[in-house]
Amino acid sequence: MSEFPASGPSGSELSGGFRAQQRFTDPMAPVPAEWTAPTPPQGVPAPPAPAPELPETGADPAPFLDLSTVALLGKGRRGPSAGWRKWLYVASGRLIDPGESPKVLRHDTLLAQAQTPLRGCYRIAVLSQKGGVGKTTITASLGATFAAARGDRVVAVDANPDRGTLNQKVPLQTPATVRHLLRDAEGIHAYSDVRRYTSQGPSRLEVLASESDPAVSEAFSSQDYHDTLEVLERFYSLVLTDCGTGMLHSAMTAVLDRADVLLVISSGSVDGARSAAATLDWLDAHGREDLVRNAIAVVNGVRGRPGRRGATVDLDKVVDHFSRRCRSVRQVPFDAHLEEGAEISLDRLKPDTRDALLDLAATVAQGFPGAGFPGAGLPGAGRPHDTAG
């Protein structure tokens, strides 16, 4: 006897059963949107990987790879720049690198300090009650050092009422003076406008000359100096002012009011040192104690002179006197090129003179707003109240 029934289910029963099981969908029913969506050109994106679990210590994940030039290419080996160190480096096929000498490191440190970035304008006043101590020379040579080291604009203004000679320190390019600048101030809107009134030297230092007629320059008042700075501060980062010897000159009040730092110039002689000290005394007596404390004393034209015992001024005592009153003291050696009194070329200065001027520029830059001390741990880096020679 067969285990199966003699007859199976009918067609209608099968049809009804499949429909009951919902094995087929209605062709007129709407199609899900994901069935007809276009395939992305890069394929279906993979699901995001789970974030790595941080260690129990709570440490941050590893930072992204630095894509700086140094990180990608490495730091090139330059080797020593001079002396026996360079010879050894080249002779060994660049295998032995003794590094730069302390002198080169000191120079690089001072240069970086002199190049401290500036926001706005920084005003330097150079003054002394005694003529002939090199006040104008220091103004021009320091300005040239700044201009050669930095990429921004530097200008020196002659505020000497007695026919100043600052314009003789650079090649004369225009007969215009500060009086012409003031006359046309309302029409100056761009650097190209103010450049018509200045002369520029090889170092890129610009000089704004004073009137050659003492009667006219004497009329240069405090308001005139204020108006001059209003123009120059719009286009220059550093403004150096070569002041006259008279502390009671009409423009001196504005010079002191607007100065960020004073450079008090002294020679290596007894009368030069006394005159510089008298300048500080006058400032203290007229309520300028803050300027005195932040001032930089510059002993100019220092050189060894033969003579009898006791005939040479003890510069150590001169330096000690000013270091107790000022922020810093600097010495600039005698240089025949500066003694000429003509146009100044940094290339013609002795190496020691260039180093001393760079040291002076770095010391001034210590007072820039927000200035740090890059490489302060390296040999020779200037600090307040030091007395480098």
Rank of each mutant, 00 (worst) to 15 (best):
D271Y: 10
A297N: 01
C243Q: 02
G272A: 14
S269K: 09
R258E: 10
N294L: 01
L291H: 11
D284L: 13
D281V: 08
I296M: 03
S250K: 05
V302W: 08
N300L: 05
V270Y: 06
D290H: 01
M252K: 05
G287I: 02
A273D: 11
G246A: 15
L280W: 07
R293F: 00
A297Q: 00
D290E: 13
N294V: 00
V299Y: 10
S250M: 03
N294G: 14
I296E: 05
G304D: 12
T245Y: 00
H249A: 11
M252P: 08
I265Q: 00
R293C: 01
T279A: 15
A285E: 03
P306T: 13
A259Q: 03
V298K: 00
S250D: 15
S250V: 08
V292N: 02
E289Y: 12
N294K: 13
A297E: 02
D257E: 15
L256G: 07
R303D: 14
C243W: 05
V255I: 15
A295Q: 11
G287P: 14
L240D: 04
V264A: 05
N300D: 02
E289G: 13
D260H: 14
D281K: 04
R288Y: 11
R303H: 13
A297F: 00
N294P: 00
L262N: 06
P306C: 05
S266A: 15
D260I: 03
P306S: 13
V255G: 07
A285P: 01
R274C: 06
N300P: 03
A295C: 08
I296F: 12
G301W: 01
L248W: 00
D257S: 02
G246W: 05
T245V: 11
G246C: 02
M247C: 04
A251R: 06
L263N: 06
A278H: 12
S267V: 09
L240A: 10
R303Y: 11
T241H: 00
R303I: 01
I265E: 01
L256Q: 10
S266D: 11
L262C: 12
M252N: 04
A285V: 04
D260W: 07
V255N: 07
